[in-house]
Every structure is written in structure tokens, then in C-alpha cells.
């Protein structure tokens, strides 16, 4: 059925004589530029407007800052993906003491009762980011085998590590500068805040299906 359908659809489309389009002029996107030092404050401002939270730390201090945040907020489990440099830093920060507990997402979701634990027991998930977007606010995430997709989705709190010097002007610039088109990952994401809805009377409610909180841990240069 499908092959015949494919041929017939493509044949009908090929028979039409569509109008030739105007030139696509991307100047309106390309001219959106901010000074390097203005990008992080802009991103923070825009993301806070949609209820993202920020924790600023130094390169040396961020793992402990996360640990303190978890303790203060009464969050007792943090799921993370081992194998990245950032994961190594987290593990090091947990070398002394075990509370709150650091849980490794180190096997397929189907293993044992990992999926149930992910949905029911885990308080927070930790991911790195590839960078951010100054224009609209927002983080760029490329989940990897080391950092699975659900880390940033299922736990009620998502903690995302952002290097404040890795912020692009626009989404368009990010994909061009980094050459995304020549190698898209299985899944790539932009995330600008905690999950939300306005489906009831246009009134915003946060934490509808995904994370109720998004904490951006921003690494600022030491000065």
C-alpha cells in the first residue's frame, strides 16, 4: 500500500508547476548580535522571566554549590550520567559523605527497576549543556550515551551546567558556527525553563509533565 501511495503522491506533486520563490535573506537573523559580555546577563534575564533559576559559581566551586543547593532544598537524590568530565567533578565533590545521594544513570532504562526509580524516586537530574542562546534565552543540550535524554526530562528538578562564555547570539548562529547540519545527534534540544502550560484560561502553570524547576548553574569567569 505504502509504496504505491508514495509513487502516486510524488507523481501528483511533480506534475504541478509551483511559483518560483523569492530569495531567502537571512540578514534579519544575522544582524542579531550582542557583545560577548552582554550575552549571559541577557540569557539570564530572559530565562528568569520564564521561571528558570540561576546559581552562579566558579569553575572550581560549582560541584559543591550543587551539593549545597540539594541539601538546602531537601532534595535527596541526584541522577547524573557518569563518563563526562563534569561527572568526574561531581563524583569528586561527593568523595566525602554520601548525602544527598548521587545516583549514576549507567545502564539502559529497561534494566532492573531503573525506569520506575527514575519516575518515582529521583529528585533531580544533572546535565551539562553545549551552550546557550542570548537572543531568546535558552540552553542547548545534546544528550549523549553518557548523558541520556531523560535526565533533563523526568526528574522534578533539572540542574543544567552552563559555561557563561559559551553563549551564542542566536539559535541560527549556533547551528551554523558549530556545523550542526553535517552531524546532527540522535536528539538535540533547546530548553528555556521548567515545563509549563497555559491551556486553562491562558493562565501559566509550571511543572505540568516535565521538570517543575530548572536550575541553571552558571560558571562565571574568575575575576
Amino acid at each position: 500500500m505504502s509504496d504505491g501511495a508514495r509513487a502516486r503522491i510524488l507523481e501528483r506533486l511533480a506534475a504541478a508547476r509551483p511559483k518560483s520563490p523569492a530569495i531567502s535573506d537571512f540578514a534579519v537573523v544575522a544582524r542579531k548580535q550582542w557583545a560577548a559580555e552582554a550575552r549571559y546577563p541577557r540569557l539570564r534575564f530572559l530565562m528568569e522571566a520564564v521561571h528558570s533559576e540561576f546559581l552562579e559559581a566558579t569553575e572550581a566551586g560549582w560541584p559543591l554549590a550543587i551539593r549545597e543547593f540539594l541539601a538546602e532544598e531537601g532534595l535527596s537524590t541526584l541522577l547524573y550520567g557518569p563518563g563526562t568530565a563534569a561527572a568526574g567533578r561531581l563524583e569528586a565533590a561527593w568523595a566525602a559523605g554520601t548525602r544527598p545521594s548521587l545516583v549514576a544513570y549507567d545502564r539502559p532504562i529497561e534494566s532492573e527497576d531503573l525506569k520506575r526509580r527514575l519516575f518515582e524516586d529521583i529528585d533531580a537530574g544533572f546535565t551539562t549543556t553545549r551552550g546557550g542562546i542570548a537572543d531568546t534565552g535558552g540552553l542547548i543540550l545534546w544528550p549523549t550515551p553518557d548523558e541520556p535524554r531523560l535526565l533533563s526530562l523526568v526528574p522534578p528538578v533539572h540542574i543544567a551546567l552552563l559555561d557563561s562564555r559559551s553563549i551564542h547570539n542566536t539559535f541560527w548562529e549556533a547551528m551554523r558556527v558549530e556545523g550542526w547540519a553535517s552531524g546532527m545527534p540522535p536528539n538535540a534540544l533547546l530548553i528555556s525553563g521548567p515545563s509549563k502550560t497555559a491551556d486553562i484560561e491562558q493562565t501559566l502553570a509550571y511543572g505540568v509533565h516535565g521538570p517543575k524547576r530548572l536550575l541553571v548553574v552558571a560558571i562565571l569567569p574568575e575575576s
Binding site: I109, T136, P185
Partner: peptide
């Protein structure tokens, strides 16, 4: 649509779960 400069999520899917991945 909703007067947002960006939505909460923009989800780009290019492959099913690859061999080394743990979910998807």
C-alpha cells in the same frame, strides 16, 4: 502563536536510540 520568544522545549529528533544510548 502565543507571543513567546521561545518555547520551553524545542525537540530535534534525528535517530532512534543508538547502540550505546541508554534511553530513547
Amino acid at each position: 502563536a502565543t507571543g513567546q520568544s521561545i518555547t520551553t522545549y524545542f525537540n530535534m529528533i534525528t535517530r532512534p536510540r543508538t547502540e550505546a544510548e541508554k534511553d530513547g
